[in-house]
Design a protein around this nucleic acid. Structure first.
Lengths: 166, 166
DNA sequence: TTACTTGCAAAGGATTTGCCAACCA
DNA sequence: TGGTTGGCAAATCCTTTGCAAGTAA
């Protein structure tokens, strides 16, 4: 019932994703769904919201419930594996925490998010906090910008519901 | 039935608050509730959330419904009179937009918010955006810090529900 | 007058949770 | 095999909205 040929992939058993490794390191019990979600997150190069993760996980394989995605993503956040972001629009978006400290520039016309890091800023932030009598334990920097010279009328997809939330 | 003596204050008619003036400038119809909310906001020195504004308005005088507070606060935001902030915790908080550009340092132990402005930062932000090919149209900077040397155990009121949301 | 506002309550969207069965270590 | 986890649906929280009645200009 067990041939060497298939032994390698009893059930899509690929190398653990980077985030899965982090989970194991921190002693999380790895279930099929968690592995799946970890993989989706590891492969994401953007800043997916919970629903994005949910959709991608479903497409990729198993059946996960959105509740599990919420639970897992929150668990990973608590373990410091993910960082929760808020770019406006009412949904939380996630970012693997090990990509190094970086910040975001949001293109207000297209909603696209560009990452960047900046040494000078890090130092400046530390300095400001100190001057106010605090030790810096976290920071959040988001820039909102518009492409230098757009020929007008080219505005991309506004973040879902155009009006309401920030 | 009408004496000169009371003519001056038909009904708590005080000088219009700063925010009320801004509303009038932008042609908003001023109702009693709006005047009240404008006053609460003008007098606020912190960053109240909608419920804070609602509570203060009620205490101050009239009966307003929370729906009206939500509507008004949003209207003022659209008119550029208020700025919506998100310090984590799931509620939006508001800040009069004419206090000048400033940012916030949040004391992670007490939840207190300290405002500050920093020229060097403004310049840096503009520079970063430019380098990435964007014109800066907005920014958000929040520092999270801990008082330099707290004798422990002094942690103030954590923002409502301690655990969950960011 | 007459369009704009308000209050109330119900609707909505995102996120969390209770409960029991399924599952992993 | 015992404790954990996952699914489902109901529950929460914050915020928005429909509608009828009230009000500023």
């Amino acid at each position: 019932m067990e041939s060497r040929i298939t032994a390698r992939e009893p059930r899509a058993e690929r190398a653990p994703s980077r985030i899965e490794e982090l989970c194991i390191e921190r002693g999380l019990k790895m279930t099929g769904q968690r592995r799946l979600i970890a993989r989706v997150l590891s492969e994401a190069e953007d800043h997916p919201d919970v629903e994005d993760v949910y959709r991608r996980a479903l497409a990729l394989d198993s059946k996960v419930s959105i509740a599990t995605v919420y639970r897992t993503v929150r668990l990973l956040e608590e373990k410091g594996i993910l960082e929760r972001r808020d770019f406006g629009g009412g949904r939380a978006r996630y970012d693997p925490a090990d990509r190094g400290h970086h910040h975001h520039l949001i293109d207000v016309d297209s909603g696209k998010v560009i990452e960047f890091a900046d040494e000078a800023f890090e130092a400046l932030a530390r300095g400001i906090a100190e001057r106010l009598g605090f030790k810096l334990v976290g920071q959040r920097l988001e820039l909102f910008g518009r492409r230098a010279s757009p020929p007008e009328a080219e505005r991309g997809t506004p973040r879902r519901k155009p009006g309401p939330r920030s």
